[in-house]
Design a protein around this nucleic acid. Structure first.
Lengths: 101, 101
DNA sequence: TATATTTGCAATCAATCGGTTGCAAATAAT
DNA sequence: ATTATTTGCAACCGATTGATTGCAAATATA
Protein backbone atom coordinates (compact mmCIF):
# COMPACT_ATOMS: atom_id res chain seq x y z
CA UNK A 1 0.00 0.00 0.00
CA UNK A 2 2.38 2.66 -1.27
CA UNK A 3 1.21 6.22 -0.58
CA UNK A 4 2.13 9.26 -2.58
CA UNK A 5 1.68 12.95 -1.93
CA UNK A 6 -1.13 13.25 -4.51
CA UNK A 7 -3.24 10.71 -2.63
CA UNK A 8 -2.38 12.44 0.64
CA UNK A 9 -3.75 15.83 -0.39
CA UNK A 10 -6.89 14.37 -1.99
CA UNK A 11 -8.76 14.48 1.32
CA UNK A 12 -9.93 17.90 2.57
CA UNK A 13 -9.28 17.01 6.23
CA UNK A 14 -5.69 16.09 5.41
CA UNK A 15 -5.22 19.35 3.53
CA UNK A 16 -6.54 21.19 6.60
CA UNK A 17 -4.11 19.29 8.83
CA UNK A 18 -1.23 20.28 6.57
CA UNK A 19 -2.42 23.88 6.80
CA UNK A 20 -2.27 23.69 10.59
CA UNK A 21 1.11 21.98 10.74
CA UNK A 22 2.60 24.48 8.31
CA UNK A 23 2.07 27.12 10.99
CA UNK A 24 3.43 25.11 13.92
CA UNK A 25 4.12 21.55 15.05
CA UNK A 26 1.25 20.00 17.02
CA UNK A 27 0.30 16.91 19.01
CA UNK A 28 -2.43 14.60 17.62
CA UNK A 29 -4.83 15.66 20.37
CA UNK A 30 -4.31 19.33 19.59
CA UNK A 31 -4.88 18.67 15.91
CA UNK A 32 -8.02 16.62 16.57
CA UNK A 33 -9.55 19.50 18.53
CA UNK A 34 -9.81 21.44 15.27
CA UNK A 35 -12.13 18.87 13.71
CA UNK A 36 -15.50 17.31 14.39
CA UNK A 37 -14.38 13.73 13.86
CA UNK A 38 -12.80 11.52 16.50
CA UNK A 39 -9.17 11.60 17.59
CA UNK A 40 -8.58 8.19 16.01
CA UNK A 41 -9.93 9.34 12.68
CA UNK A 42 -7.55 12.29 12.72
CA UNK A 43 -4.72 10.00 13.83
CA UNK A 44 -5.29 7.80 10.77
CA UNK A 45 -5.03 10.85 8.55
CA UNK A 46 -1.75 11.77 10.24
CA UNK A 47 -0.51 8.23 9.68
CA UNK A 48 -1.17 8.57 5.95
CA UNK A 49 0.65 11.92 5.92
CA UNK A 50 3.55 10.19 7.71
CA UNK A 51 3.69 7.34 5.19
CA UNK A 52 4.35 9.73 2.34
CA UNK A 53 6.74 11.74 4.51
CA UNK A 54 4.97 15.08 4.18
CA UNK A 55 4.77 15.04 8.00
CA UNK A 56 7.43 13.91 10.46
CA UNK A 57 7.25 13.18 14.18
CA UNK A 58 9.32 14.23 17.14
CA UNK A 59 8.64 12.41 20.40
CA UNK A 60 9.15 14.09 23.77
CA UNK A 61 7.99 11.92 26.65
CA UNK A 62 4.52 10.59 25.94
CA UNK A 63 3.73 13.48 23.63
CA UNK A 64 4.42 13.42 19.92
CA UNK A 65 4.79 16.60 17.94
CA UNK A 66 4.04 16.25 14.27
CA UNK A 67 5.67 18.78 12.02
CA UNK A 68 5.35 19.71 8.39
CA UNK A 69 7.91 18.70 5.74
CA UNK A 70 7.74 21.29 2.94
CA UNK A 71 10.11 19.37 0.67
CA UNK A 72 7.40 16.85 -0.22
CA UNK A 73 5.11 19.64 -1.38
CA UNK A 74 7.81 20.60 -3.82
CA UNK A 75 7.00 17.39 -5.73
CA UNK A 76 3.53 18.71 -6.51
CA UNK A 77 4.99 22.00 -7.65
CA UNK A 78 7.44 20.12 -9.87
CA UNK A 79 4.60 18.15 -11.47
CA UNK A 80 2.67 21.39 -12.03
CA UNK A 81 5.60 22.78 -14.01
CA UNK A 82 4.46 20.76 -17.05
CA UNK A 83 1.21 22.73 -17.10
CA UNK A 84 2.24 26.06 -15.63
CA UNK A 85 3.12 27.77 -18.89
CA UNK A 86 -0.26 26.77 -20.31
CA UNK A 87 -2.07 29.01 -17.86
CA UNK A 88 0.59 31.69 -17.49
CA UNK A 89 1.43 32.35 -21.12
CA UNK A 90 -1.48 33.52 -23.22
CA UNK A 91 0.41 32.96 -26.49
CA UNK A 92 1.06 29.35 -25.61
CA UNK A 93 -2.64 28.94 -24.93
CA UNK A 94 -3.43 30.39 -28.33
CA UNK A 95 -0.90 28.04 -29.95
CA UNK A 96 -2.51 25.10 -28.21
CA UNK A 97 -5.96 26.18 -29.32
CA UNK A 98 -4.90 26.57 -32.94
CA UNK A 99 -3.23 23.16 -32.94
CA UNK A 100 -6.37 21.53 -31.68
CA UNK A 101 -8.56 23.06 -34.38
CA UNK B 1 -20.90 13.50 -5.31
CA UNK B 2 -19.00 16.76 -5.70
CA UNK B 3 -15.59 16.36 -7.31
CA UNK B 4 -12.66 18.66 -6.86
CA UNK B 5 -9.35 18.96 -8.65
CA UNK B 6 -7.43 17.42 -5.73
CA UNK B 7 -9.45 14.22 -5.96
CA UNK B 8 -9.05 14.25 -9.73
CA UNK B 9 -5.25 14.24 -9.67
CA UNK B 10 -5.03 11.63 -6.91
CA UNK B 11 -5.15 8.79 -9.44
CA UNK B 12 -1.97 8.14 -11.51
CA UNK B 13 -3.96 7.20 -14.62
CA UNK B 14 -5.83 10.50 -14.47
CA UNK B 15 -2.56 12.41 -14.09
CA UNK B 16 -1.25 10.60 -17.16
CA UNK B 17 -4.42 11.49 -19.11
CA UNK B 18 -3.95 15.15 -18.16
CA UNK B 19 -0.34 14.90 -19.36
CA UNK B 20 -1.54 13.65 -22.74
CA UNK B 21 -4.33 16.20 -23.11
CA UNK B 22 -1.99 19.05 -22.20
CA UNK B 23 -0.11 18.28 -25.44
CA UNK B 24 -3.16 17.95 -27.69
CA UNK B 25 -6.89 17.26 -27.61
CA UNK B 26 -7.77 13.58 -28.07
CA UNK B 27 -10.74 11.24 -28.48
CA UNK B 28 -11.47 8.71 -25.70
CA UNK B 29 -10.40 5.84 -27.95
CA UNK B 30 -7.08 7.50 -28.72
CA UNK B 31 -6.52 8.13 -25.02
CA UNK B 32 -7.41 4.56 -24.08
CA UNK B 33 -4.78 3.19 -26.50
CA UNK B 34 -2.13 4.63 -24.21
CA UNK B 35 -3.21 2.45 -21.28
CA UNK B 36 -3.60 -1.23 -20.48
CA UNK B 37 -7.08 -0.91 -18.99
CA UNK B 38 -10.30 -0.95 -20.97
CA UNK B 39 -11.80 1.95 -22.90
CA UNK B 40 -14.67 2.14 -20.42
CA UNK B 41 -12.29 2.39 -17.47
CA UNK B 42 -10.49 5.27 -19.18
CA UNK B 43 -13.85 6.83 -20.05
CA UNK B 44 -14.81 6.84 -16.38
CA UNK B 45 -11.60 8.64 -15.56
CA UNK B 46 -12.36 11.23 -18.24
CA UNK B 47 -15.83 11.65 -16.77
CA UNK B 48 -14.33 12.49 -13.39
CA UNK B 49 -11.96 14.98 -15.04
CA UNK B 50 -15.01 16.50 -16.77
CA UNK B 51 -16.95 16.81 -13.51
CA UNK B 52 -14.30 19.03 -11.98
CA UNK B 53 -13.90 20.89 -15.29
CA UNK B 54 -10.18 20.26 -15.75
CA UNK B 55 -11.15 18.71 -19.09
CA UNK B 56 -13.75 19.94 -21.57
CA UNK B 57 -15.29 18.27 -24.61
CA UNK B 58 -15.86 19.33 -28.20
CA UNK B 59 -18.08 17.08 -30.30
CA UNK B 60 -17.61 16.77 -34.09
CA UNK B 61 -19.88 14.12 -35.58
CA UNK B 62 -19.66 10.94 -33.56
CA UNK B 63 -16.20 11.80 -32.31
CA UNK B 64 -15.56 13.74 -29.13
CA UNK B 65 -12.33 15.59 -28.59
CA UNK B 66 -11.44 16.14 -24.98
CA UNK B 67 -9.16 19.03 -24.29
CA UNK B 68 -7.26 20.29 -21.29
CA UNK B 69 -8.37 23.29 -19.20
CA UNK B 70 -5.24 24.78 -17.59
CA UNK B 71 -7.22 27.24 -15.46
CA UNK B 72 -8.31 24.47 -13.07
CA UNK B 73 -4.69 23.51 -12.43
CA UNK B 74 -4.16 27.07 -11.28
CA UNK B 75 -6.27 26.22 -8.22
CA UNK B 76 -3.66 23.71 -7.10
CA UNK B 77 -0.92 26.25 -7.63
CA UNK B 78 -2.91 28.76 -5.60
CA UNK B 79 -3.25 26.29 -2.73
CA UNK B 80 0.48 25.58 -2.88
CA UNK B 81 1.22 29.27 -2.35
CA UNK B 82 0.57 28.83 1.36
CA UNK B 83 3.50 26.42 1.58
CA UNK B 84 5.77 27.65 -1.18
CA UNK B 85 7.85 30.02 0.91
CA UNK B 86 8.42 27.24 3.46
CA UNK B 87 10.41 25.20 0.99
CA UNK B 88 12.04 28.19 -0.66
CA UNK B 89 13.13 29.75 2.64
CA UNK B 90 16.64 29.39 3.90
CA UNK B 91 15.14 28.59 7.33
CA UNK B 92 13.89 25.32 5.96
CA UNK B 93 17.42 24.42 4.93
CA UNK B 94 18.52 25.21 8.47
CA UNK B 95 15.84 22.85 9.79
CA UNK B 96 17.16 20.04 7.63
CA UNK B 97 20.71 20.75 8.74
CA UNK B 98 19.76 20.63 12.42
CA UNK B 99 17.89 17.35 11.94
CA UNK B 100 20.93 15.74 10.38
CA UNK B 101 23.14 16.71 13.32
C1' DT C 1 1.56 3.13 44.29
C1' DA C 2 -2.62 4.31 42.20
C1' DT C 3 -4.77 7.22 38.82
C1' DA C 4 -5.09 10.13 34.77
C1' DT C 5 -3.45 11.40 30.21
C1' DT C 6 -1.63 10.60 25.66
C1' DT C 7 -1.20 7.76 22.03
C1' DG C 8 -1.23 3.66 18.74
C1' DC C 9 -3.35 -0.61 17.21
C1' DA C 10 -7.13 -3.87 15.88
C1' DA C 11 -11.81 -4.93 14.50
C1' DT C 12 -15.72 -3.38 12.26
C1' DC C 13 -18.81 -0.95 8.98
C1' DA C 14 -21.04 1.68 5.13
C1' DA C 15 -19.61 4.19 1.14
C1' DT C 16 -16.65 4.98 -2.59
C1' DC C 17 -13.20 3.60 -6.15
C1' DG C 18 -11.32 1.55 -10.13
C1' DG C 19 -12.07 -2.00 -12.87
C1' DT C 20 -14.86 -5.28 -15.75
C1' DT C 21 -18.71 -6.85 -19.19
C1' DG C 22 -22.85 -6.11 -21.83
C1' DC C 23 -25.77 -3.24 -24.37
C1' DA C 24 -27.93 0.64 -26.81
C1' DA C 25 -27.66 4.99 -29.47
C1' DA C 26 -25.64 7.80 -32.87
C1' DT C 27 -22.80 8.47 -36.85
C1' DA C 28 -19.82 6.91 -40.76
C1' DA C 29 -18.71 3.73 -44.37
C1' DT C 30 -19.79 -0.09 -47.63
C1' DA D 1 -29.95 -0.62 -46.57
C1' DT D 2 -26.59 -2.98 -44.09
C1' DT D 3 -22.51 -3.05 -41.53
C1' DA D 4 -18.80 -1.02 -38.80
C1' DT D 5 -17.12 2.44 -35.60
C1' DT D 6 -17.37 5.52 -31.70
C1' DT D 7 -19.20 6.51 -27.53
C1' DG D 8 -22.02 6.66 -23.09
C1' DC D 9 -24.70 4.25 -19.66
C1' DA D 10 -25.91 0.56 -16.33
C1' DA D 11 -24.90 -3.39 -13.53
C1' DC D 12 -21.74 -5.74 -11.08
C1' DC D 13 -17.41 -6.90 -8.23
C1' DG D 14 -13.35 -6.87 -5.13
C1' DA D 15 -10.38 -3.53 -2.85
C1' DT D 16 -9.81 0.67 -0.54
C1' DT D 17 -11.41 4.67 2.19
C1' DG D 18 -12.89 7.28 6.09
C1' DA D 19 -15.11 6.76 10.10
C1' DT D 20 -16.35 4.46 14.47
C1' DT D 21 -15.55 1.83 19.09
C1' DG D 22 -12.79 -0.75 22.30
C1' DC D 23 -8.53 -1.73 24.30
C1' DA D 24 -3.60 -1.83 25.64
C1' DA D 25 0.94 0.43 26.35
C1' DA D 26 3.65 4.15 27.86
C1' DT D 27 4.26 8.26 30.49
C1' DA D 28 2.98 11.86 33.75
C1' DT D 29 0.69 13.18 38.07
C1' DA D 30 -1.68 12.58 42.69
Amino acid sequence: MRRDIFQAIADPTRRAILGLLALQAMTPNAIAEHFDSSRQAVSKHIQILMECEVVKQQQTGREIHYHFNPQKMKEIDLWLDRFRKLWEDRFDQLDNLLENL
